[in-house]
């Protein structure tokens, strides 16, 4: 025992400073995480305020005609004048976006798994996937209206189509970038493919998957709105189209801002989820002094 401790002594000093301290800090990491989140968000918030300020100055000084660019006040008034109207249409678009996003995750991850485990499926499916991706969604959206009618389903389908691709690509990349030695090790442990997938391969792919999800979240919003542009009687896309037709720029601006907020919120939700699912990854990222927000 004495000999052992003399051996390990220098090793301890070479271990990263505070290794044990950070290990014990970990369970209570959520609070500090939120604090860190706040610390990271004030900068973009300040930029946002600055943009609002410029917008206000430009319109207040009447540098542009009010019917081209409404003031922030007018835009806010439009929303406050008909809160029910905006809430309803925002809800519709949110519903289409989130549903489309959820379906895209399910289908995307599943097809990525199948493709990684079966080269035959990958070879036959990949070109099709690429084809589905490069085709302009705005061009095929009318077809979905013809097929599925004016309801919510064509919008959801377009949202799925937009969000699907980044999820598949990132999941395939994640699942393939597994250390081959890890798989060999798993084989010597007597683990079956399902066990290896659940305990090693899938968790290892999560950082890639979440990168794809973040891109997909913003795409899903675009998809839903594109679907609404082509043919709808509700939703933010419909609101914008209507406002545009009536040269009602305050409503147009309000719709645009709400739509952007929707995308941002969805993105932030995914990012929070990422932090909750992979605290190990998030902590490593901040250790490296890189932040995403």
């Amino acid at each position: 025992m004495a000999a052992q401790s003399t051996i390990e002594q220098p090793e301890r000093t070479t271990a990263p400073a505070g290794a044990t301290a950070s290990a014990t800090r970990r369970p209570g990491g959520a609070g500090t995480g939120l604090l860190r989140f706040a610390r990271n968000t004030w900068r973009p918030a300040a930029v946002l305020v600055a943009i609002l300020l410029v917008w206000w100055v430009v319109t207040a000084a009447e540098l542009v005609k009010p019917y081209l660019v409404p003031s922030p006040g007018t835009t806010l008034d439009v929303v406050l004048a008909q809160p029910g109207y905006f809430t309803h249409h925002t809800w519709i678009t949110t519903y289409e976006t989130v549903l489309g996003f959820a379906i895209a995750i399910l289908v995307g991850v599943l097809s990525a798994v199948v493709m990684v485990y079966s080269p035959t499926v990958e070879k036959s499916l990949y070109p099709l996937l690429l084809f589905a991706q490069v085709i302009p969604k705005i061009a095929i959206a009318p077809l979905f209206i013809v097929w599925l009618g004016f309801g919510l389903s064509p919008k959801v389908v377009v949202a799925v189509l937009m969000a699907f691709f980044p999820i598949v690509i990132s999941t395939v990349t994640g699942l393939k970038s597994i250390d081959p030695e890890m798989l060999q090790l798993s084989a010597t442990m007597g683990a079956g493919p399902a066990q290896t997938f659940r305990k090693i391969r899938f968790p290892a792919a999560l950082p890639h998957l979440f990168a794809g999800l973040k891109v997909a979240a913003t795409m899903a919003v675009t998809g839903a709105v594109v679907g609404e542009f082509v043919g709808a009687n509700e939703g933010l896309g419909y609101v914008i189209l209507q406002a545009n037709g009536n040269l009602d720029t305050p409503t147009l601006f309000a719709g645009l801002i709400i739509m952007s907020l929707l995308g941002v919120i969805l993105f932030v939700v995914v990012e929070l989820l990422e932090y909750l699912v992979m605290p190990w990854h998030a902590s490593r990222r901040t250790d490296a002094a890189t932040t995403t927000m």
Binding site: A15, T20, R26, W280, R284
Partner: peptide
């Protein structure tokens, strides 16, 4: 192996030897 005290550390908190 002299890992006592490091059981709950994550790999990125450990040195190569550990």
């Amino acid at each position: 192996t002299g890992l006592t005290g490091f059981e709950d550390a994550y790999p990125n908190e450990l040195s190569g030897g550990m």
